[in-house]
Simulated assay, not measured.
Amino acid sequence: MELETHLSESQSAVPGTVRPGGRTAKVRAAVLEATEDALAAAGFHTLNMDQVAAAAGVGKTTVYRRWGSPVGLVTDLLRDMADRSLPAADTGTLEGDLRANAALVLKTLTDPRMGAVFRAVIAAAACDEECAAALHGFYRARLTEWAPVVDRAAERGELDPGTDALEVLRAVSAPLYYRFMISREPLTEADARRAVDAALAATRAGAYATGD
Rank of each mutant, 00 (worst) to 15 (best):
A40F: 07
Y139D: 10
A147K: 03
C131M: 10
V150T: 00
M49G: 01
L77E: 05
R84W: 12
C127S: 14
R156A: 09
L77W: 03
A100I: 04
E129N: 00
P87H: 06
D111I: 10
G96V: 02
A38I: 05
A154K: 04
A103N: 10
F44E: 04
Y177K: 11
E167R: 11
L39S: 04
R142S: 10
A165S: 13
T144C: 05
V71W: 03
T61Q: 15
A82E: 10
Q51D: 12
W67N: 01
A147P: 11
V71Q: 13
E129K: 05
G96T: 03
A38H: 05
A134G: 07
R113F: 13
A125N: 06
A100R: 06
L39K: 05
S173T: 14
E95M: 11
R152D: 07
A116C: 13
R119C: 11
T46M: 12
T91V: 11
S69R: 03
P87T: 08
D128L: 06
L159H: 05
E129Y: 07
C127R: 07
M49E: 04
D50W: 03
T91H: 11
A53C: 06
G115F: 03
S69A: 11
D50R: 12
R152N: 09
V149L: 02
A141W: 04
A56W: 02
E155P: 02
R79S: 10
A153K: 03
R113T: 15
A124E: 04
T91K: 10
V52S: 01
R170C: 10
L106K: 00
A82F: 07
A147S: 13
A125Q: 05
M114F: 14
P87R: 08
A133Y: 02
D160M: 08
A103P: 06
R66N: 07
A123E: 12
I122V: 15
P148D: 08
L98A: 01
R99S: 05
I122A: 15
A165Q: 00
E129H: 04
L106C: 08
Q51I: 12
D111L: 11
V117S: 05
A100N: 06
D76R: 04
I122P: 05
Y177M: 13
L73T: 01
Y177I: 12
D111G: 14
D97M: 06
G162H: 05
T62I: 12
